[in-house]
Design a protein around this nucleic acid. Structure first.
Length: 795
RNA sequence: GGGCCCAUGGUCUAGCGGUUAUGACGUCACCCUUACACGGUGAAUGUCCCCAGUUCGAUUCUGGGUGGGCCCACCA
């Protein structure tokens, strides 16, 4: 028997390591700036580095890699850099935990140092996981060349972030305003909505007495925040509420503070809630804030940033909110203005770290204008090709929901600094020139004299940017905006933004917005939106539930290739969440073994040159292959690997291995010399051609396996081969007819407990299969053949 | 409260106005047939969530319900 060229018994992780180590060592996927090929750029979602790579992330990165590899084989110059997002809260939280420090009790310099220490330890582990997954990033080294690994907290990246701020400032797109924010009195910092938790907390619902100015009528109003009576700006009732319709347009006098406020009807007042009357305070919660804005009321801010009440609160001044509440309740009781108290529990916003109750406090922050551009954003959202198209709706819904400009400043430490100084005397803002990374909290102002008042004393801004302000320039950064204008001009917009559905409203929206404001263009051609990998029960994976799967575990157990094949085959991430199941990943491994053995079999034979005339059986399998090639080209180009992967898998197992290989075997061996050299060559050439094509079709999905096989068997790096184009082989008969006949024969033998090699005395074969009579006879051992409509197998 | 999505054998899934409802995993039975026992051949398992409507006919379309998931908003 001939020897196979493949020595290894099966595919394994050691072979994977050989492949990715070599790619890394050879810098195989380095971005080639001098190439004339069209650039295809992928703006990868920079993953946070302080946690291990999440299995969902691993899956989506594998899918992105499939896109990259396909486009590479299609003749594109691939820009596929690895970015690591290292700014913001998660890093700070990790540092606080590790070093037992707090934002409030640690000098800024020292705090940043602690964050850096945390970062140093974490980056290597996560990038190594990507390497093991076989991702074809341009580079594994941090650097400033196109395609290099980048960190969002590097000087270069932060420089660009600050530059974009300066540009937008100069275009008049940024303004400062005092508005109400989530504020944690414990941490003394603004919080993003994402940092706010909710807890069921016991509270007291207090019914207190207001008086109608015009009539002297007493009004009972329920509130959980009596200490905010001093900030009451209006009393409202529902327009449908018969009890209060007569109050419309009258005025209420607040208890203790005796302030006159209008009474109006408003649909947000619920008839059944409390007494049906509500006092609207300036900052009880976010809805109050919106209400004040809507009604054109001027808010009265009564809470200081340290959580104490200020002069607006009169006799409560200086007290912490909680104490103020106690005191005013006593006072109201004493004056007979408190008629009822009721214990309730309600969801209260708390700080996810310190668990303090969130206050809503007005602070000066910078805002990026976005309300003026809602129409433009809709236009951009319609311009980008969404995969799947249904995802566009999430974006459009969000644009509709945008109601305030974008607050971009935060009072934190580990993020990009706001590059501004202020004149100590006249408070004029000093904007530095672009091109350098500024840390105003510890650096001197870039000017010596205030341009407005000539004062020489300045104070640096101590705030930092919202991390989305950084991450929303990633396509600009990877395309070297402002760093290599030629390259940027030539290669923008960015070809693809792959990302999760949950951050359409943040990352995708902010990126489109900011890049539009800066360049006036739509920054992406395509947006591929993925859903989630959930646990085997269909639940969202989260650290707190403890159902997170570490990709390292999968890599150790099964290796990257089964995982990648699983990711391609299993589900359609564009449409739905799909479940992570080890059983199924393991199942994908079987297909790899099958392919391995197919390759082993074929490699036992030397290939032959293509004969002038191919055997009909070979024509048939080639026509099947053509169909697969066509499907792959059509779907891969639309980021759909799911459909082709299923079909490829089916082809490998059924059509090719079970039927074609069985039928062609005898002709390939030609041990008894029963067929001509040409017939044998036709078999040998077709077998090799099918395998080679199959490896190309599978290369984007399983890069390491296909690389190894095509190196060993054909001496070529499959990833730099051209992706196949469908030929036009004509099948001499329908596939189903052949499959059905084979099965009938096998079943007949099986039913009689005969060996599959047993002779068939007489068979009735469909007419169309006459062209492959020879192959059928040798495979099934047919002694006599008749042709007719019904199968017949006589044993 | 608003929005979006989903519902098919034990599990996961394809599908479509008419099918003996697809396939996979698992289960069971038999078989080492010279690439492969990580294999082969076959079998069992389904009121295609419920109700109504459209239709000659609905798993497929429409409406309602139930259950599940996700996002957003809110709780004076």
């Amino acid at each position: 028997m001939p020897e196979s060229k493949i020595k290894e018994k099966s595919w394994n992780q050691e072979l994977e390591k050989e492949a990715y180590d070599k790619w890394k060592a050879d810098n195989l996927y380095k971005f080639d700036k001098s190439s004339k090929k069209p650039v295809y750029s992928i703006d990868t979602p920079p993953p946070y580095v302080n946690t291990p790579v999440h299995i969902g992330q691993a899956t989506t990165y594998c899918l992105m890699d499939m896109f990259a590899r396909y486009k590479r084989m299609k003749g594109c110059n691939i820009l596929f850099p690895l970015g690591l997002d290292r700014n913001g809260l998660p890093i700070e939280m990790a540092a606080e935990k590790k070093f037992n420090i707090k934002l409030t009790n640690t000098p800024r310099e020292q705090y940043i140092e602690a964050c850096r220490k945390v970062l140093e330890e974490s980056s290597a582990a996560s990038t190594d996981t990507f390497l093991q997954l076989g991702i074809s990033f341009n580079s594994w080294e941090l650097g400033n060349e196109i395609g290099d690994v980048y960190h969002t907290d590097s000087d270069a990246y932060r420089t660009l972030t600050q530059e974009t701020f300066i540009d937008m400032w100069n275009k008049g797109l940024i303004y400062e305003d005092e508005r109400i924010n989530n504020y944690c009195p414990g941490c003394q910092t603004t919080l993003a909505d994402a940092e706010v938790d909710y807890a069921e907390k016991a509270s007291t619902f207090n019914d207190i007495i207001f008086t109608v100015k015009e009539t002297g009528e007493k009004l009972t109003i329920g509130t959980t925040r009596p200490e905010l009576v001093c900030t009451c700006g209006m009393v409202i009732f529902n327009p449908e509420d018969e009890r209060y319709k007569h109050l419309e347009g009258k005025h209420a006098i607040t208890p203790l503070f005796n302030k006159e406020v209008p009474i109006k009807s408003h649909p947000i007042a619920q008839i059944e809630k409390g007494t049906g009357l509500a006092m609207m305070c300036s900052a009880g919660d976010l809805s109050d804030i919106r209400f004040f804005r809507e009604m054109g009321l001027t808010p009265t801010i009564a809470i200081n940033r340290d959580g104490t009440m200020n002069e607006h609160a009169g006799f409560l001044k200086g007290l912490y909110v909680k104490d103020a509440r106690k005191k005013i309740i006593e006072e109201l009781k004493e004056k007979g203005l408190l008629v009822k108290q009721q214990q309730i529990t309600h969801k209260t916003p708390i700080c996810e770290r310190s668990k303090h109750e969130i206050e809503f406090i007005a602070m000066k922050e910078y805002y990026v204008k976005q309300l003026d551009f809602k129409d433009k954003m809709r236009e951009l959202a319609n311009k980008v090709n969404f995969y799947a198209p249904e995802s566009r709706k999430i974006m459009l819904d969000w644009i509709d929901a945008v109601s305030i400009d974008w607050p971009i400043t935060r009072r934190r430490f580990y993020a990009t600094e706001v590059p501004l100084w202020y004149c100590r005397k006249c408070h004029e803002a000093i904007v530095p020139p672009k091109g350098k990374y500024y840390k105003p909290w510890k650096e001197k102002a870039p000017v010596s004299k205030c341009p407005k008042c000539s004062s020489t004393e300045f104070v640096g801004d101590e705030r930092v940017f919202d991390p989305w302000f950084d991450s929303s320039i990633s396509p600009l950064y990877i395309l070297k905006y402002s760093m290599d204008e030629n390259f940027f001009e030539k290669n923008s917009p960015c070809s693809l933004r792959p990302q999760g559905k949950e951050i359409i409203r943040t990352w995708l929206y902010y990126t489109l917005l900011k890049c539009y404001l800066l360049t006036g263009k739509c920054i992406f051609n395509d947006a591929w939106i993925n859903y989630h990998i959930v646990d085997e029960k269909g639940k969202k994976m989260s650290k707190s539930t403890g159902n997170v799967v570490d990709p390292q575990e999968v890599l150790k157990k099964f290796g990257a290739e089964p995982f990648r094949l699983w990711a391609a085959v299993e589900g359609n991430l564009e449409r739905d969440d799909f479940r992570c199941s080890f059983e199924r990943i393991e199942g994908a491994g079987k297909t790899i073994v099958k392919l391995w053995n197919v390759a082993k079999f074929i490699s036992m034979f030397e290939s032959a040159s293509k004969p002038a005339k191919l055997n009909p059986l070979d024509e048939w399998i080639l026509s099947e292959l053509d169909r697969l090639v066509a499907v792959s080209n059509e779907s891969y180009g639309n980021y759909n690997f799911h459909e082709p992967a299923i079909q490829l898998k089916h082809f490998i197992w059924e059509t090719f291995a079970s039927h074609y290989m069985e039928l062609v075997k005898n002709r390939a061996y030609n041990q008894e010399g029963k067929c001509s050299k040409e017939e044998q060559d036709s078999a040998l050439w077709t077998l090799h051609h099918c395998l080679e094509t199959l490896l190309k079709l599978l290369a984007p999905i399983m890069p390491m396996l296909t690389y190894k096989l095509s190196m060993d068997l054909f001496g070529k790096d499959v990833h730099f081969e051209e992706f196949p184009v469908a030929g036009n082989h004509k099948a001499p008969f329908a596939t189903e007819e052949l499959l059905a006949f084979d099965s009938a024969v096998w079943k007949a033998k099986k039913d009689k407990a005969l060996s599959l090699k047993a002779e068939v005395k007489k068979a009735v074969v469909p007419e169309v299969l006459k062209v492959i009579e020879k192959d059928l006879c040798s495979t099934h051992g047919l002694k006599q053949v008749e042709y007719g409509k019904e199968f017949g197998v006589e044993l």
